[in-house]
Each structure stands twice: as C-alpha cells, then as structure tokens.
Amino acid sequence: MKSRFAADEAERRVRAVRDDPAGRVALAAEAYPAALVGYGRAELAFLRWELARGVLHPELGSPWWRAVNDRLLRDKMEGRILAAEGGTASTPGARGWQEFLAAPSPSSWYRAHNRSVVSGYLDHVELAVNECAAERFMINVTLARMLFTHALIERPGLLLGRFARLGPRAGDPRTRSVGLFLNLRNVFPEVYPLGDISVEQVITLEGRVARMIDYGLIVPKLDATYDFAAETLQEPRLPALIADGVLRYAGPTVPATAFRADAITRLVASATRRH
C-alpha cells in the first residue's frame, strides 16, 4: 500500500508542475532535506539552464527534455516519500533516491540521479529522434558528461591516470568544481529551438576549457566511461550508445573526425592516460 501510494503521489506532484517550468525547479529543490541541499547544487543549476533555454516550456519547449525531467522528478519524489514512510520503489531510479536519502554520499547521489536520467533517455528515444542534429549532439554530450563525472567519484584512476586523487573532489556534486563538467551555460547556445545552427557550429562555439574537457578528457575515455556506467547503474544498454568514438544516442550526429584535438587537448589526453 505504501509503495503504491508513493508512486501515485509522486506522479500527482509531477503532473501538477508539468506546465510550470518554475514549479519544476521548486519541486526538484524540495526533494532535498535541509541537511542535503548541497547535493542539489549541480542539478538545480542545470535545471535553471534548461529553464533559460526554454526547453521546459509547456508549448514551445522540447517534448524530449520535458519527458526526461518528468522521469527525474518522479523518481526523486517517490524516493523522498519512501525514505520517510518505507516501502518498495517502483523503479530503479526511485530506489536509488531512497538509498541516497538513507545513506547520502557523492556516490549514492550519482547512482540515483544518473539512473533516473538514463532511464529517461532510454525510454524516450523516439522523442529525441525528432530533435535537430545539433540538439541531439548536445543531448549526447550532456549524458557523456554526467556519466564521466560519476566515474570521477568511483573510478578516478580509470579516467585521470596519475591524477586520480583529484577525481573525487572535482566530481563531488556539493562543490563548485563540478560545475566545470555539469554547468553547460557557457558551453552551448542558450536558445531553443536551435534553428539552422549546425553541429559543427556548436562544436566551434565551445570555449577552450569545454573543448579540453570534452575532447581531452571525455572522448578518449568514452568506452571506459559507458562500460563503468553500465555496470554501476545496472543498465547493459548504455555501451550501445557509443561506437568508434562517436556518440550515437538517437542516431549519430557527427563523425569522429569532427572531434579534432588541438595541442592542449592532446596533452590532456596523454597526461591522464591510464598506465
């Protein structure tokens, strides 16, 4: 009974803010008890970026971005209710949030957050396919960055090599440093829809720091990152979302040759290679 109530109540609360972008932000923040508000820093910053882009607008926004956010909010609210009342979660994501609230840590936060987001991605491929190529590229990069940042916490040596000791601090969702990976405000265009903007233009618009992160750190470790996420999140479909260095969720949007590394990104890739 408690389990069914939690799922139904979570759905009711998400439905109440579905056409209210600012209400989505408030509901997302409400899922964190006062002692844990720091864990919501990166998530809420990302949500405000979505709000600024307009992707959550009930009429002019993106059905895909709205659906994925629905899933995250629903899982969070169900997990919050279950953490207080007890019961069994209806989804792996909700169970992750229940476990995070029972034993909060950077690792349990990423397992909860990323499992919910990954479920949203995999459940709504048909909506993503309808987005333009540049939007799908941004969607893919967003996922790659989230999975990579999680791995910084649990497998830093896999991604940073000799600099592994820096991983847990850099990836901690409570710190400002995580914004280097998860804050996309200064990385991608803050408009929706993107219109005639091409994937190549989006790549060109990335700043030097963003390029260093994407092409010096993340792209060379895509296979390791997605394999790690598949194991940790218990989602075996994840590795199929990349192939030959190309992000392929909702179809390939850019050839591997587009990720040409400059001298700095090549240096970063070499310095963080696992030995």
Rank of each mutant, 00 (worst) to 15 (best):
A6T: 06
A10E: 08
R15D: 15
R18D: 03
R24D: 06
V25E: 00
A26T: 10
L27Y: 02
A29T: 02
A29Y: 00
E30C: 04
Y32G: 00
Y32W: 11
V37M: 05
G40C: 10
R48Q: 15
W49H: 05
A52M: 10
L56K: 00
P63Q: 04
W65F: 13
R66Q: 13
L73Q: 07
E78H: 09
E78I: 08
G79D: 11
A83W: 04
A83L: 06
E85R: 14
T91K: 09
T91E: 14
G93C: 13
G96S: 13
W97F: 12
Q98S: 12
A102L: 11
A103W: 11
P106S: 12
P106A: 12
P106K: 12
S107G: 07
S108R: 10
Y110R: 07
A112L: 08
H113G: 10
N114C: 02
G120K: 04
L127S: 06
E131C: 11
A133I: 04
F137E: 02
V141K: 13
R145F: 01
F148P: 01
T149K: 10
I153C: 07
R155I: 06
R162W: 01
A164P: 01
R165Q: 11
R165N: 04
G167Q: 11
G171I: 07
V178I: 12
L182Y: 06
R185M: 13
R185D: 15
L194H: 02
L194A: 05
I197H: 05
V199G: 07
V199K: 06
Q201F: 01
L205M: 13
V219K: 13
P220K: 01
P220D: 02
A224Y: 01
D227P: 04
A230D: 03
T232S: 12
Q234N: 15
P239Y: 02
P239F: 02
A240K: 10
L241G: 06
D244V: 01
T257D: 00
T257N: 00
A258T: 01
R260A: 14
R260T: 09
D262E: 05
A271Q: 10
